[in-house]
Amino acid sequence: MSKPNKKQPTKTVEIYCSKCKTLLFKYRKGGKGALVKCFKERIVKDMTVTPCHCPGCDCEFARDTLVRGTPAYKIIGGKVTMK
């Protein structure tokens, strides 16, 4: 399996909790598709206190996993929105 691109994407998106609209991450997203996973090395600013849990409503929005040998958060469908 191939690793994610070494060159970081230039487009930065803000990721919010769907339930309480709390800002979770500022993330460098590549491509124009839906947000399925967040590579930890691409997170610019992390607002969460405990990993994968919203600081506002304490709901779990992702799972900690390895994707192509790189640490990432696998997003649970419908739990986050991005702008």
Rank of each mutant, 00 (worst) to 15 (best):
M1Q: 14
S2P: 15
P4I: 02
P4Q: 08
P4L: 06
N5P: 04
N5C: 10
K6A: 10
K6F: 12
K7H: 04
T10A: 09
K11H: 09
T12K: 09
T12I: 02
V13C: 05
V13H: 04
V13P: 02
V13F: 03
I15C: 01
Y16P: 00
C17I: 02
K19S: 12
K21M: 08
K21E: 11
T22I: 13
L23P: 02
L23N: 10
L23C: 13
L24E: 05
F25M: 01
K26V: 01
K26S: 14
R28P: 03
G30H: 07
G30M: 04
G30C: 04
G31E: 05
K32Q: 10
G33F: 03
L35H: 06
L35K: 05
V36C: 04
K37C: 10
K37S: 11
K37G: 02
F39V: 01
F39N: 01
F39P: 00
K40H: 07
E41M: 10
V44H: 03
D46Y: 08
T48S: 07
V49E: 14
T50K: 07
P51M: 06
P51Y: 04
C52T: 15
C54Y: 08
C57E: 12
D58Q: 12
D58G: 02
D58Y: 07
C59G: 04
E60Q: 15
F61M: 04
F61W: 14
R63I: 12
T65F: 07
T65H: 06
L66S: 12
L66V: 11
R68S: 14
R68V: 13
G69M: 10
G69F: 04
T70N: 09
P71V: 09
P71K: 15
P71N: 14
I75G: 00
I75L: 12
I76H: 01
G78H: 11
G78W: 09
K79I: 00
K79E: 12
V80N: 02
T81D: 10
K83A: 10
